Simulated assay, not measured.
Amino acid sequence: MSRDGITRRTLLAASAAGATLASTAGTLAGTTWRAVAGAPAILKPLPPEWFVDFGTNAEMRWESVDPRRYLTAPSHLFVRNHTVTPTIDASSYRLRILGDAVAGERSLSLRDLHRFRPVEVTTVHECTGNGRSFFGSQQGETVSGTAWTLGAVGTVTWQGVRLADVLRAAGVRRDAVSVQATGLDPSFVSGGVDHGPVRRPFPIVKAYDDALLAWGMNGRPLLPDHGYPLRLVLPGWVGIASIKWLGSLEVSTTELTSPWNTRWYRMSGGAYPADAPPLTLNPVRSAWELPWDATLPRRRRLELTGRSWSGAGPIARVDVSLDGGRTWSHARLRDRPRGAAWTRWSVAWDRPTPGAHTLLARATDVHGRTQPDVTPYNSQGYFFDAVVRHPVTVA
């Protein structure tokens, strides 16, 4: 494997994905992905044993996660839509690159993008509001937004090209400071106000660092609900930054703004100042691979599993409590460090007593960031990273 994680298998998978994009466009836009739940916002099937259906959004159920599988299958990945999933013809698709920091506007087809060196990146993909419901159920606070538990997350291996390579080929000026990514989904209307298509700027340094233009997930073309035929991926950052159905990139010598970084996806309320910065790097979180209020069989030993992740880097340690926080022990980490991807872990529960119990998991990443006991309040319910108290019953 090379320094960039590129292998012959990666190259073959990327090439196959590119060859498939145009040929599958009609199928993806037609009967194969006819909405069966979440309609009309979401196109892929949402079986209730896999998802909590919120209509425009769908949350992965942790009890549907296979502890033996590291990656999240696209069919199981959560969906966060502001409006509805569009159907886009890959054969006529173009990515526009424009702005005062480029030599001239460019229009790139998928074929053009496939001429760049392909790469793949494995990273956690997560909604900024993941865990939002626990502000109410665990901290007694009222916040707005979709009442996610912890299933608005997944780990995916993305196939695509580095944004840095594309920007350099477009002749971006050295004094560029900001890039605004705009999606091709319908305009978002709220309170009678048309805010336009979903779009959000990010610093040019992130664009040159690890940003990706992705056409594939886990070796296959993107599903429509996850950005087909092309999306932006900003590893480690809030999900809203990884714009789906990418239509254009505006590169500017001045700071760009949109409602998605000035009005939403920044902290407000509580102790936060009015000029709190836009949210970027995801916090540290942990989840048990169990239903909420799970009933567990009484045995001499129970093997419990879960996953932890951080936007800043690998997980270094996971501490767990099987008695509501009275005692703690180290969980066994089951994966080698993988950048901004998650880590699976397990713990043996010897001779659990019958009755109600509360499970806790607290992760710490390689930078020393750890989960707190309480998440500071914010009105939008972003970044709930406190240790979640997971109830179970042994019977």
Rank of each mutant, 00 (worst) to 15 (best):
M1K: 10
D4L: 15
T10D: 07
T10E: 05
A13C: 04
A16Q: 09
T20F: 06
A22G: 02
L28A: 03
A29T: 01
A35V: 00
V36Q: 14
L43Q: 08
L43F: 02
P47L: 15
F54Y: 14
W62Y: 06
S64Q: 10
S75D: 12
L77G: 03
N81C: 13
T85W: 12
D89H: 06
V102K: 11
A103Y: 00
S107H: 09
S107Y: 05
D112Q: 05
D112K: 08
R115V: 00
R115C: 06
F116S: 02
V121R: 11
H125A: 11
C127H: 07
C127I: 06
T128A: 15
G129Y: 03
S133V: 11
G140T: 01
E141R: 14
G145D: 06
T146M: 13
W148A: 07
W148P: 01
T149M: 13
T155Y: 01
T157H: 01
G160E: 05
R162A: 08
L163C: 05
L167F: 01
R168S: 04
G171L: 09
D175Q: 13
L184N: 09
F188H: 10
G191T: 02
F202Y: 09
V205F: 03
A207L: 10
A207I: 04
A211L: 08
L212N: 01
N218M: 02
P221V: 09
D225M: 11
D225A: 08
P235N: 10
G236C: 12
I240G: 04
K244G: 04
G247R: 11
V251Q: 06
P259K: 15
T262V: 14
T262Y: 03
S268T: 08
T280M: 15
N282V: 07
P283K: 15
R285Y: 02
W288K: 09
P291I: 12
T295K: 13
L302Q: 07
L304E: 00
T305S: 11
T305Y: 10
T305N: 05
G306P: 00
R307T: 00
W309V: 09
A316C: 10
D319R: 15
V320M: 13
S321C: 09
G324K: 13
G325A: 09
H330L: 15
R332I: 11
R332E: 15
R338G: 02
G339N: 10
A340T: 10
W345Q: 09
S346G: 06
W349Y: 04
D350N: 08
T353A: 15
T358F: 03
R362P: 00
V366G: 06
R369T: 05
Q371H: 07
P372K: 14
V374N: 04
Q380A: 12
V388D: 02
R389E: 09
R389M: 08
V392D: 02
